[in-house]
């Protein structure tokens, strides 16, 4: 979706405030709890990482701007818990459980030991490819216009723009479908864009590299 999360190149978003590198990892204990709750609830297997990103993106324009970073995480998590039926709207309103979650959900509760392993191991997102890649490094491509209300990683600023495939990263889980619960792979490419192609003639001469899946791309004429 082309919402307010998709900020590449936007103006008027305020001042950039650098820091020293010495600040705490979390701004507060509540932020730390929201971070950990999001990871632990994700481990229940009811939704994918892409669905979590999409939940935060669906919060609405006003909340996107009004809420702080971990407030958005909390709102996104709450939305996913309710939509997946892990908790009901009534339970969220009252704060009290009407009963335990279904056995198959409780069975996947993340333990401290599994949490430590998840941090150390992660989960790869590359999959076996079902077909040969359509594009090769050095090839000129164009990003298709892609106005979907669903999840996508085809950044707005690159849509319709010409770039050059620099690297084929292999076949990776495709976010647009993974967000809907379909863990299927598509070829993923690193595509380089000249800044002037993206931002016009007054842009400084830099290059922007964007990772784009095959369905986002077409051959440049």
């Amino acid at each position: 979706m082309n919402g307010l999360h998709d900020v590449g190149g936007m103006h008027g978003l305020g001042r950039l405030v650098p820091d020293t590198g010495d600040e705490a990892v979390f701004g507060s204990r509540s932020q730390a709890r929201v971070f950990a709750l999001t990871i632990a609830a994700g481990a229940l297997g009811r939704w994918s990482l892409d669905a979590s990103r999409h939940a935060r993106e669906r919060l609405g324009a006003v909340d996107q701007l009004r809420l702080g970073y971990f407030e958005r995480w909390l709102a996104g998590l709450t939305l996913q818990l309710r939509e997946s039926g892990v908790v009901t709207a009534d339970e969220l309103a009252s704060g009290n459980a009407d009963g335990p979650a279904p056995e198959e959900v409780v069975a996947r509760r993340l333990t401290a030991e599994r949490a430590g392993r998840a941090v150390e191991r992660g989960r790869r997102s590359d999959l076996e490819a079902a077909s040969a890649p359509r594009f090769t490094p050095g090839q000129r491509v164009r990003v298709r216009p892609h106005a979907t209300p669903g999840q996508t990683r085809a950044v707005r600023y690159a849509q319709g723009r010409f770039g050059e495939v620099r690297v084929h990263h292999g076949c990776h889980v495709f976010p647009d479908r993974n967000a809907r619960g379909e863990r299927v792979g598509e070829h993923l490419y690193g595509v380089a864009f000249d800044a002037r192609e993206l931002w016009g003639g007054s842009a400084t001469g830099h290059t922007v590299h964007v990772d784009l899946w095959e369905p986002y791309l077409e051959e440049a004429p």
Binding site: F26, A32, R33, F35, A36, L37, I39, A40, A41, L44, L81, V86, V87, E91, L92, G95, N96, A97, P100, A101, V105, V106, R109, L110, T111, A112, E113, R114, A115, G116, V119
Partner: peptide, 17 residues
């Protein structure tokens, strides 16, 4: 609420943090 539902173990949160 999530602890009461049986889906979150606070020790796992402590570990992640």
């Amino acid at each position: 609420l999530l602890v009461e539902k049986g889906v979150i173990d606070p020790a796992a949160l402590d570990e992640l943090i």
